Computed example of a mutant assay.
Amino acid sequence: MIVILFRILILIALALLVYTVYQYYRNPERKMQIAKAKDDFYIVDEPTNSKKNIQFVYKNCLFEGEKYLGTTEDSFEVVNISVFARDPGELGGITRDDLYFIEKELLIRYPHAKIEWKHPINKLLLTIIE
């Protein structure tokens, strides 16, 4: 009887171990850190939850966007996204074309949204192109 109990406990421990490894590989924060190390674009978002902020990585810089809900012609949608860099020191190497790429990616997910850039990113968009 005690041997069967130990076998059941070992099976439960193995199932818990497999579940923990699975959750580790599915963790969006881990995927974001990997994308940051590889200089890739990766976005973490819950489109159905308008209260949760958007987090994304592009060119080794971590951005966050606050979503604001509003009305469109026929429904309530995200109508405004305020984007800022978590660490402005990481913005080195980000160009205006990179910001346009980020805006395009956000507008694909939220077509009714207006993208607002917070300081210091908005200074790059306001400068005159020579």
Rank of each mutant, 00 (worst) to 15 (best):
S75F: 07
R26F: 06
D74K: 06
T95P: 10
P111I: 02
K123D: 10
I54S: 03
K104R: 11
L62K: 04
Y68S: 07
S82E: 07
A85L: 05
P88H: 02
L106K: 03
L17D: 05
T71M: 05
A85Y: 02
K38P: 05
K36A: 12
D97Q: 14
V21G: 02
S75Y: 08
D39V: 00
K123Y: 08
I2D: 14
A13E: 01
Q33W: 13
L9A: 10
T20D: 08
L62H: 07
L16E: 09
Y58H: 12
K38Y: 14
G92L: 10
K51F: 13
P28R: 04
L99V: 09
E103N: 07
I128D: 15
A15W: 08
K52D: 11
E77I: 03
C61I: 04
P120D: 09
I34W: 08
A85C: 12
L106I: 08
G89E: 06
E77S: 14
V57M: 09
Y42E: 09
L124S: 06
I81G: 05
N60S: 14
N80F: 11
E130S: 15
Y68T: 09
S75C: 06
G89P: 08
I102G: 06
N80I: 10
K31D: 04
I2Y: 09
F41G: 02
L9C: 08
L99E: 02
D98G: 11
G70W: 05
R7F: 15
Y100W: 12
E103K: 13
V21T: 04
N49C: 07
L126Y: 07
R26W: 04
R30K: 09
D40E: 15
D97Y: 11
E29M: 08
N53Q: 07
V79P: 04
N53K: 06
E77K: 13
F101M: 09
R86N: 11
Y58A: 07
R96W: 15
I12N: 06
T127D: 13
